[in-house]
Design a binder for these strands. Structure first.
Lengths: 212, 212
DNA sequence: GAATAAAATTGACCATAGTCGACTTTTTTC
DNA sequence: GAAAAAAGTCGACTATGGTCAATTTTATTC
């Protein structure tokens, strides 16, 4: 019976994660010691390190679980027919809400996601690939509908949206954008990215170039 | 005579910074202990904490010195007459080179810059303001030349460029962009942001800059 | 220049992230 | 089912970031 062991491993991991979520939420990440966490999970301190390499790994594991769940949800609910702009706002706002739900969790997650340590690269790239799998079909559809230029690599397109998303989260952490304003801000940024920052050649959509 | 004391304070700070740069470069940030650093600077461990609040503060102090220096340089060398696109590429590439010169330094700096801890907010905002002071005049000039839409807030314009810069650095840390490719990638992204991601109404490919 | 006040320095000390070899439990082998 | 092997658990131990009361150095007052 090779089952008992694996069963137990899963349960222990669960116990750690549950204790972590509870304690981190109650007292914050920094204020929770590993020893305390171990006690709360009903195991020894050393055991934690056979499930996670570092303290922040525990946090990341949680965030990643959330993200996987979120991606699944997004994949299922993706409405491929509404305009790309709205699709993107919807997707990134879901992520935004998850990330900013707990300020400290989110900060560590973003720091690690945007500028990962070399140790975490592999895990990170895998995660990123999931993203592309989610986004590319949507972008292709949008392109077919004529909403996207055909001379820009899809990777670059995702880059534009992701860059602006990073900006939004950054602005949230510096207090320049409040939670309530976030969606409007993101939509504005995305729309501007679609339309371009330079004036439109023949004064088409919306804005004039009235000189002086 | 109130001079001796202040003189010494400056010298000690210098000594710490020098030792830090040396040791951090040689052995990396994590591997250098505060005690070691203190010995190298010829002072006691506790003294360091009357100059810097935390270990990473030492790193940030260094990075900020660099940045101030860089900003000065950029302000002096800014050529307000060349196209905005090139100005922006030049500015952000200078910063990119500084940040990526030392991988580990840069990572911590970016993590803290993009998603600052609440403790560091004030310092961060001050830094950001310097940025705006550098960029706004350039953007205004560009706008006068008809290179920028007039219906977008300048803050948003800087946001677009900064977001794409964040993306570039992020892509560098994940290995998706190599150092040699960075400038081309950034220029491409910036140009696309200027032109917009959606097809141009009259099939004009974006060169439609009838200036002069 | 002696006495006093203020500022700066220090290293012993504390808390805790992470390690490691001894120990316990499960699985495999015969 | 007993013995050996493998996998998992544990907490004492190490290393280090950060604190603080005692000490030394500098400035001020008379």
């Amino acid at each position: 019976m090779a089952g008992i062991r694996e069963q137990k491993k899963l349960e222990t991991r669960q116990a750690i994660m549950q204790a972590a979520v509870k304690l981190f939420s109650e007292k914050g990440f920094e204020k929770t010691s590993i020893e305390e966490l171990a006690r709360a999970a009903g195991i020894g301190k050393g055991t934690i390190y056979s499930y996670f390499q570092t303290k922040s790994d525990i946090l990341h594991a949680f965030c990643e679980d959330e993200m996987v769940c979120l991606h699944q949800e997004l994949t299922d609910n993706a409405d491929k027919e509404i305009p790309l702009l709205q699709q993107m706002v919807r997707i990134y706002m879901s992520e935004f809400r998850h990330v900013t739900e707990n300020r400290e969790f989110g900060r560590l997650f973003m720091q690690e996601t945007a500028f990962p340590r070399d140790v975490d690269l592999e895990r990170h790239l895998e995660n990123e690939d999931n993203y592309f799998k989610l986004l590319f079909p949507l972008l292709e559809k949008a392109r077919e509908r004529g909403e996207l230029r055909k001379d820009i690599d899809l990777l670059y397109i995702t880059g534009h949206f992701y860059g602006l998303y990073l900006l939004l989260v950054s602005a949230w952490y510096t207090g320049r954008v409040r939670t309530e304003e976030a969606e409007t801000a993101l939509e504005t940024l995305f729309r501007q990215a679609m339309e371009g920052l330079q004036p439109h050649p023949e004064g088409i959509s919306g804005e004039g170039k009235h000189h002086e």
